[in-house]
Simulated assay, not measured.
Amino acid sequence: MRTWSTPALLVLCTAGAVLLGGTALFLAALFLHSAPSNALSKQYRAELDAVVYPEFEQNWRLFAPNPLQQNVTVDARVQTIAADGTVSTREWAGLTAGDIAAVRHNPAPSHVDQNLLRRALDFYDSTHAEQQVIGPRAGLAEQYLKRVALQRLGPADRGLRLFQVQLRVGTAELAPPEWSREQVDTEPKYRELPWWPVGENDLRGLW
């Protein structure tokens, strides 16, 4: 039987205490972040956000779950311009559909496929209301959403350059269960965003 020296035991006990303490603090931070707002979570909001975001982000709350009741999809299309000045408009491409296809049947889906597009749209909506700017970060939100869309669409064909990009957001209510008498219109309703010009800076580093 191996006998540990006193210094070795001291090091092992100290390391174990640090690991247990760190784990307890981390779990406590996750709990406070997910729990309803309280005095502690308000006082240490910045510290809690620093622990949770971005790796451990959650979109649910303890004790008061609020599941999504709508399916939201994002489509995009671009206009290209040829050397002779001819402008062509591509068909709508389903950005959300592409993300769903990448996630479905994938045992370890990418965080990018699951959340990047959705968070970019949430960021945009939080800084715009009926196409009106409502915050100082509106330009950043627009640029971010535009670059996300352009990255998913890919570069233009040879001999063409990207001229403009446009997004549309489809919202469809989830159908009620078969046993429910509730009547819900499940047809998607679309909201088109403005055409945004595409410059060299918009494309830098995307592919």
Rank of each mutant, 00 (worst) to 15 (best):
R2V: 09
T3M: 04
T3H: 13
T3N: 03
W4N: 08
P7I: 03
A8I: 07
L9W: 14
L9S: 10
L10V: 13
C13R: 15
T14C: 04
A15C: 08
G21D: 13
A24F: 13
L25W: 09
F26T: 02
L27S: 12
F31D: 11
F31I: 11
H33W: 09
S34Y: 01
S34E: 07
S37D: 15
A39Y: 10
L40Q: 09
L40G: 08
S41D: 05
L48D: 00
D49K: 13
A50M: 02
V51F: 04
V51W: 04
V52D: 05
P54G: 09
E55W: 14
F56N: 04
E57Q: 15
W60E: 02
N66E: 13
N66W: 10
L68P: 11
Q70I: 03
T73S: 13
T73C: 07
T73E: 08
V74P: 02
R77G: 03
A82Q: 05
G85C: 06
V87Y: 10
S88D: 14
S88R: 13
A93G: 00
L95P: 03
A97S: 15
D99N: 08
A101E: 12
V103M: 10
H105P: 00
P109K: 06
S110W: 06
H111L: 13
D113Q: 10
D113K: 02
Q114G: 02
L116D: 04
L117R: 01
R118P: 00
R118H: 07
F123L: 13
Y124R: 04
S126Q: 12
S126K: 09
T127R: 15
T127Q: 14
A129W: 15
A129F: 15
E130C: 04
Q131V: 01
Q132I: 08
I134Y: 07
G135I: 07
P136H: 03
P136Q: 04
Q143I: 08
Q143N: 15
Y144N: 14
Y144D: 14
K146Y: 06
K146V: 02
V148T: 12
Q151T: 12
Q151K: 15
L153N: 07
L153D: 02
L153I: 06
L153A: 02
G154R: 11
P155W: 02
A156G: 08
A156S: 10
A156Y: 03
D157A: 09
D157H: 07
L160P: 00
F163N: 10
Q164A: 12
V165H: 01
R168L: 02
R168S: 01
R168H: 02
T171S: 01
E173Q: 13
P177H: 07
E178V: 08
W179L: 01
W179Q: 07
S180P: 09
V184R: 07
D185M: 06
E187N: 10
P188F: 03
K189H: 09
K189W: 03
K189G: 03
Y190L: 04
R191E: 01
R191D: 00
E192M: 05
E192P: 00
G199E: 11
N201G: 07
D202A: 05
L203R: 06
R204L: 11
G205D: 10
